[in-house]
Write a protein that binds this DNA or RNA. Structure first.
Lengths: 214, 214
DNA sequence: ACACTGGCTGACCGACGGGTCGGTATTGCT
DNA sequence: AGCAATACCGACCCGTCGGTCAGCCAGTGT
């Protein structure tokens, strides 16, 4: 025993290689479509060796999800600190959120997969908790904006939070698909997309009497 | 041969039972997690009998997807005929779209699953085509509204179409999750959600000088 | 009565899945 | 050096997978 605790979760070079390989494969193909042999090969080790680190396939999957959850939460923490006016906070949140989605596509797809699952719970709670965090923080921003009079108070913060999250998720999820349509020109500029999206949320799209220029 | 054509695709009682069972199972658990035996049991027939109707598992899956695609497209046709002012057309579209999503949750999850897939193409194109239809029709409505001066012309129709679709999809996808939060009270009233959502899109959420009452 | 045909089945096959076992290479401590 | 623990592997076990096959059992035309 060279150090105090090894049973927690950190350290372990081989472990990390396994998790990294499994993360990508699970995200790309789903739990059942990925064999332990495939993971082992991708990680450059033998299948039996995986069982040296993880008791079974579910445990490995859970570890991957937990790692993903921790990573995403950590990175999204930045998006969640809201300072300044609500409009600015919203813009910051949206752009930051989308950037993190795009930076970790495997983890995100892992989460979306879990959200779709209707059979084994496996790690639903983890995915749920992640989304709930985002949701709560967004609602907080909006409510603050309402209390300070910057935003109208006759709309449901939860509704707008859902819309913003939905806009980001669908952008992430159907980006490749949208890319095939030439009339869509925001596919490769996520920040632009998000800024315009937040602007629509903020200003609305209906022709307003007082602004008709540009 | 009691009737003219049997080789096309319709009719076939056993066939339909198989497809119905497979549809639910595939939507709930995904392609790889569902065994032919499970489908057979759910359909109340023997596994071998499935191969009497479908050449293999992929063919069955494809048939399910095609059926789903046809069903969804047919039902969504109603949502896509846009008459009247753009605002009304949008409301109609959104509510109708969401209603159809909620009425056929299995099919929809099947599609979302396919959209997530990154491995075998299997039936990506079908799912893609379905989404593209919706997208195109929505963009059409918005563009019309712009040309007729009802909507501002400085926003990207594709952007707003994406937002609306995203809002509906995320509502569908995370409905159960949202239900656990008491502050969210639109979970069980999809029409209300969609009307409010479209209203936000149309009117915006920023405090406008000219309207401050209710 | 007969054969024939289409819906249907249980028994079966090879392949591959997750998981185990016995054993070896490597490391680090004394 | 000796020793124990760790990291790792090839071979194997057994259940289940997708898929096949020979045949059963209605119905039905002759």
């Amino acid at each position: 025993m060279k150090n105090d605790v090894t049973a927690t979760c950190e350290e372990g070079e081989g472990r990390l290689k396994i998790i990294a390989a499994a993360e990508k494969l699970f995200a790309d193909h789903g739990f059942d479509a990925v064999s332990m042999h495939a993971i082992a090969t991708a990680a450059g080790i033998s299948k039996a060796n995986i069982y040296h680190y993880f008791s079974n396939k579910d445990a490995l999957y859970l570890a991957v999800l937990q790692g993903a959850s921790a990573a995403l939460r950590a990175r999204l923490q930045e998006a969640m600190d809201s300072r300044g006016p609500a409009s600015e906070a919203l813009r910051h949140f949206a752009v930051s959120h989308l950037r993190h989605l795009l930076a970790r596509p495997y983890l995100v797809r892992l989460f979306l997969r879990e959200l779709l699952e209707n059979g084994e719970p496996r790690a639903r709670d983890l995915a749920d908790a992640g989304l709930a965090d985002l949701f709560a923080s967004l609602v907080g921003i909006l409510r603050m904006g309402q209390e300070q009079g910057e935003l109208r108070s006759d709309f449901d913060p939860a509704l707008v939070a859902t819309m913003l999250l939905g806009a980001n998720v669908i952008f992430f999820q159907s980006r490749d698909l949208l890319r095939q349509y030439p009339e869509v020109h925001f596919v490769d500029t996520p920040e632009e997309y998000d800024l315009a999206m937040v602007e629509v949320l903020l200003q609305g799209i209906r022709q307003n009497p007082q602004d008709s220029s540009s």
